[in-house]
Simulated assay, not measured.
Amino acid sequence: MEACFHGGRRKQAMQRFANKVALVTGASTGIGLETIKRIREEGGTVFAAHRRGKIDIEGVASISLDVTDEGNWTRAISKVVSAAGRLDILINNAGVRESGSVEETSLEQWRRLIDTNLTSIFLGCRAAVPAIRQAGGGAIVNVGSITGIRGTENMVAYSASKSGITSMTSSLALDLASDNIRVNAVCPAAIRTRMVTNWLNSSQDTDAAEAAVLAKHPIGRIGRPDEVASVIAFLASDDSSFMTGMSIPVDGGRSIR
């Protein structure tokens, strides 16, 4: 099959997500937004979930969703199924990044990170699995972090929340395999998102902070959101039909340094 490259994105003649319905959280910017574009371009019906604002992409429906609220999840899944008749794919991308050592991290901050990054995925999967099962199976992709594979200094709560995603992904995969539901995760390192840009800009010396980040990545640069979206799309598609329970680093080689 012929494929071409344009703007760093692989364009395929085949529509991998034709007749598939996907819900993507954390959808307004960065990795979530690029994932929506990718699935939409490849023929999928996409629902963009976020706390506020509207996703201005033709054919993409927006859903207001607080990922830490159980009732919000129930209503969001119901809206998707009512509108599209099914749900095949869940992309758990919503998350927050905050720094702090164990002594600097308040209990409030700890709970905020655990609730937003980890409990949200538990709630999302619990709400979505019956609909995906009803559709005959499908795929769940959780967005973790390289810190879920290797701890990072001064990020005790964030690292804990992302490590939980890695373990939970494996457990979910075992529980759901018999339902033809595959569960995998991507673990990005530094990606040029609003989250990372804000963190760099908050540093006392932005250039020095970025240089330190670059030094951790053998590829020698910060990643792009569309590079992570490409891996998410692969894991959500039938191209990865014999993969489940995996947490895949998308990290410019950081995890092997």
Rank of each mutant, 00 (worst) to 15 (best):
E153I: 09
G136F: 14
Q12F: 14
S230R: 08
T166F: 02
T116Q: 11
I36N: 00
E42D: 07
S159G: 13
L123V: 08
I89V: 15
I89C: 04
T152D: 11
R51M: 13
S170R: 14
A127W: 09
T169N: 05
T35A: 10
K20E: 13
K54P: 06
A212P: 02
K20M: 12
C4Q: 11
V60Q: 11
D205C: 07
T29E: 07
A135F: 10
I114N: 00
A127P: 11
R182F: 04
G220Y: 07
A208K: 11
K54H: 10
S62V: 07
E98K: 14
I219V: 15
A229V: 08
L235C: 04
V67Y: 04
H50Y: 05
L235H: 03
L113G: 00
S62I: 04
I36E: 00
I140F: 01
F234M: 02
V228W: 07
S241N: 14
L87Q: 09
V141D: 01
A212D: 11
T68S: 14
M14E: 13
I63T: 09
A160Q: 05
D88P: 10
G124N: 04
M1F: 05
T197R: 11
W73K: 12
R51W: 08
V231N: 00
H50C: 15
R133G: 07
V96K: 15
S62D: 15
D66V: 12
L90P: 06
H217V: 03
S101K: 10
I63L: 15
L176I: 00
G26T: 01
M243I: 15
A135M: 08
S120L: 10
T45P: 00
S203I: 01
R126M: 09
A22I: 02
I256W: 09
A135H: 12
